[in-house]
Design a binder for these strands. Structure first.
Length: 575
DNA sequence: GCCGTTTTCGGCCCGACTGTTTTCAGTCG
């Protein structure tokens, strides 16, 4: 079994948990957690770096000791340090740490005083009322543990950013109506543009916090109040979505917005920089020996540590601070930079509106060009096009193109990549088109080697312009299939074809790391709506956010090109 | 255990809320 970065990160996190239960030096514990974060944020596989003999101590938060542990895990599949800890502390303790309300101290007490060594034992003790009798515990803590155990069954769930927007917007509007409220912004991972969010962090600028909180508690959608103070209140909406609302004075809004936007790793790095300059940075401002310097505006925080403004989408502690220091931050793409869309469907296959309505919707959205890209025959379920129907659609598109002004309709197809890497329609038919999008819609479970070879072979077909939704993931439903993305990106560069960032909210692949990889290799990314309905062109905005998370500039994106330039680039893929 | 414009030792981000405490520890973000 190949070892992935996530396996290593989990091992480090588990060591941190067990060490903390064992009352080890808290900074040693933190070192493991920092390393886990660093490994997760790394764009490349550690196993590959080890194979290439690279120096892992170059990576942030990895020193000689942890580099050796990574190497050991990659080579043997085990980390002895973790195995050793497991001989002294049951493996069942680590899941206990994941329950809200339980940390190392309490887990240690439960284990040492009551012999609780896992979730099952915890439930038995809580049911029997034994926990409330422990020093430092009480009835409320015991009740909270029982609740946490019940919630644990439903497991952690993150929701699509798009779904979160539907909850966030009315709540923000509600909070704006509270007396004395100056500003309301959704911060956290939502503001950083993560494709899924676990909760909403809403920041409010107002003088009277308690007044805002009273207004919040009157919101119709609130299911439960988890905690309530005058600067911070946490509630669960009826939908189950957790919302943290924080109120700060207007003069602290910038510092608070920076702090609550995160990411955690980014904040820690910024505060460290501040510390080196003798500054204390918190959500209330920037301080030098208790004298407040600034904090009105988010840029104050960056200025204080000698950096230019860093866009929220970049704040993942994945090189943005170093890039800012060297003035190498990308000038990120904006939604207005897109001139067209290269992937959409109509009622000819699985779309919900006919060709005319879809094209008019694209024009209304402000696009200069749009490509019609139906599924091909292999997808029987959606009545995919065979050669005859495709040729008929080409005629239909040309007729409509004559008739409609203000937008150019390109002729394309989303052709299936068959199991052996062949395309689902012959070259003679595809060559009538302006572009060919290839996509995997079957055999998702091939081993990585085969899946990668299959896709590389498809990219070598004479007519192949863009690889659609390159990992096939459906967030919350289906994992990405196993592919070596670096090889695919490299091949796209050599083949002079393109990779898609599918902007459907549950797809959004390429993801941020893959976008950065494409940019490194100089492969242009197509941000496509994959629209099936007129309103789906709005997906493009979500795609742009993901592209920004992937450090893409307008020049890195295929469909920011003018039509003439786009046609030139596409023609090369159809030779 | 990591790290370095305080550089091989001595630091390590920082504040709010809860519960159980009678002045604060534990947890969380």
């Amino acid at each position: 079994m190949p070892i992935h970065n996530e396996d290593i990160a989990r091992a480090f996190d588990e060591i941190a948990d067990l060490l903390e239960i064992d009352e080890a030096n808290p900074f040693r514990v933190r070192a493991y957690r920092n390393a886990a974060r660093s490994v997760r944020e790394l764009g490349r596989e550690l196993a590959d770096m080890v194979a290439a003999g690279e120096d892992l101590t170059e990576l942030p938060a990895i020193g000689d000791d942890l580099a050796a542990k990574i190497e050991q895990m990659v080579k043997t599949g085990h980390m002895q340090a973790l195995d050793k800890l497991h001989r002294r502390l049951p493996a069942g303790l680590e899941p206990l740490m994941q329950l809200p309300g339980l940390g190392a101290k309490r887990v240690a007490a439960l284990y040492r005083k009551l012999g609780i060594d896992g979730l099952a034992a915890l439930r038995r003790a809580a049911d029997a009322g034994k926990i409330r009798l422990l020093a430092g515990f009480g009835e409320k803590t015991e009740a909270r543990i029982l609740e946490a155990l019940a919630a644990h069954r439903e497991s952690e769930h993150r929701i699509l950013r798009r779904t979160a927007t539907a909850y966030a917007e009315p709540l923000v509007a509600w909070l704006r109506r509270a007396d004395g409220v100056r500003e309301v912004v959704v911060a956290g991972s939502y503001r950083r543009g993560r494709e899924t969010v676990g909760d909403l962090d809403i920041l409010v600028a107002a003088a009277d916090g308690e007044r805002v909180m009273q207004h919040l508690l009157a919101y119709d959608e609130i299911g439960e109040v988890l905690s309530h103070g005058h600067t911070r209140t946490t509630v669960l909406l009826r939908s189950g979505l957790q919302v943290d609302v924080r109120v700060v004075p207007r003069k602290s809004f910038g510092a608070a917005l920076h702090y609550f936007t995160g990411s955690k790793g980014h904040n820690i790095a910024i505060r460290r920089l501040g510390q080196q300059r003798g500054l204390k940075i918190n959500e209330y401002g920037i301080f030098k020996s208790d004298r407040r310097l600034d904090g009105n505006d988010e840029t104050d925080v960056f200025k204080a540590v000698g950096l230019p403004f860093i866009e929220p989408e970049l704040r993942e502690a994945s090189g943005e601070i170093e890039a800012a220091r060297r003035h190498r931050l990308p000038h990120l793409i904006e939604a207005d930079d897109l001139r067209g869309d290269l992937h959409m469907h109509t009622t000819a296959t699985d779309g919900h509106a006919d060709l005319r309505r879809m094209v008019l919707a694209a024009r209304d959205y402000g696009l200069e060009y749009v490509a019609v890209t139906e599924h091909s025959q292999h997808l029987h379920m959606v009545h995919g096009l065979d050669a005859k129907r495709l040729l008929a659609q080409i005629d239909e598109i040309e007729e409509l193109g004559e008739e409609i002004d203000g937008i150019t309709i390109l002729k394309g197809i989303e052709v299936d990549i068959l199991e052996n890497g062949d395309l689902d329609l012959p070259r003679e038919v595809l060559s009538h088109l302006d572009l060919v999008i290839g996509a995997v819609h079957s055999h998702f479970d091939l081993p990585q080697k085969h899946q990668t070879a299959r896709i590389l072979r498809a990219m070598d077909a004479p007519c192949f312009s863009i690889l659609a939704h390159p990992t096939g993931r459906l967030l919350g439903e289906r994992e990405a299939y196993a592919v070596d993305m670096e090889r695919i990106v490299e091949h796209a560069r050599d083949r002079e074809c393109f990779l898609e960032l599918d902007a459907q909210p549950q797809r959004l692949d390429l993801d941020d790391r893959h976008c950065r990889l494409a940019r490194e290799y100089g492969v242009l990314v197509a941000i496509d709506s994959d629209a099936h309905r007129p309103e789906d062109f709005a997906n493009l905005a979500d795609g742009v956010i993901q592209a920004r998370r992937g450090w893409l500039q307008a020049e890195d994106v295929l469909n920011t090109r003018r039509l003439s330039e786009l046609r030139r680039l596409l023609r090369r893929t159809m030779a």
